[in-house]
Design a protein around this nucleic acid. Structure first.
Lengths: 147, 147
DNA sequence: ATGGGTGCAAATGCTTTGCAAGTAC
DNA sequence: GTACTTGCAAAGCATTTGCACCCAT
């Protein structure tokens, strides 16, 4: 299996784009941890590691990483973009707690299959899908937090 | 069953809020047709019917309609909000065509049940959920349109 | 009468873009 | 050498907010 590095490099090459130090640095930083993040998080994270890239370049590179299939864009309660790694092995969906913001990931093969069935019925060709359930997690329910 | 009018009126009253002519006009306009729309669409629509309300009031009222359970906020490809009517009879999900923007609604009881099952497993209390599949519709596939 | 509501314009917050200078290929 | 890239600051866009005046209850 290709490393993220090679995957991105190949994607850029196929589009006639360049693999610059800035893109390398962003790529490293994005894949250094495995959590959901947004553009601002990444910027702060990079600054803390003394990697200086402009905000504009971060936005431009994140868009490329999505196009190249290395990141997936997810939109939670807020209206700005969040990103997560694309894992080659599985697609997953999210439970988003509106009490504490916690995000629980899950996969359910049966749901995936039913989605495929719906698409077939409508002669629709899936590119991507997103299932998100908003609610309250166990901790918040116990803490008596309500919507 | 309550009309939208009565439902909104009751909601407002229960919160100590007022039923103003502006809110009435927006309510009428929102429920005059049955499609997905965004704030700007509504503004234009109202202007064309010579109903003048400020953009600020539209935003403020849409938020109230969501809180009151008359509208549901859905977020498609773009990062701004879209709205749809809440039908008392069913929740539905969306197939969004990235070729022509068409939106196909569907419901599948089995998927709903599996979602409940997932939530139970995680002791998560659902407030709302959203399933959206992005892809190409039959027409766009036949027209040879690709992502 | 009074607490909420409205319009307006300014502010916000995320994201995109124009441009001049730099650089990977 | 020539596209493609970058950083910066300015622009964009949807949405929110402060404020002075207005009105439904």
């Amino acid at each position: 299996m290709l490393s993220n590095d090679e995957k991105f490099r190949q994607f850029l090459q196929s589009k006639g784009l360049k693999f610059t130090p800035e893109r390398q640095a962003i790529l490293n930083c994005v894949f250094a941890s495995d959590r959901h993040f947004e553009a601002e998080d990444l910027l702060i994270d990079m600054r803390q590691h003394d990697l200086r890239v402009s905000k504009a370049t971060i936005y431009r590179t994140l868009a490329l990483l999505v196009k190249g299939g290395l990141l997936r864009e997810v939109i939670f309660g807020e209206k700005h973009a969040h990103y997560e790694h694309v894992h080659d092995h599985e697609h997953h969906d999210h439970l988003v707690c509106s009490g504490c913001g916690k995000i629980i990931e899950f996969t359910d093969e049966r749901i995936e299959r039913l989605q495929d069935e719906v698409c077939n019925k409508h002669k629709f060709r899936t590119i991507s899908h997103r299932l998100q359930i908003t609610g309250l997690c166990e901790d918040c329910i116990n803490a008596g937090i309500s919507e």
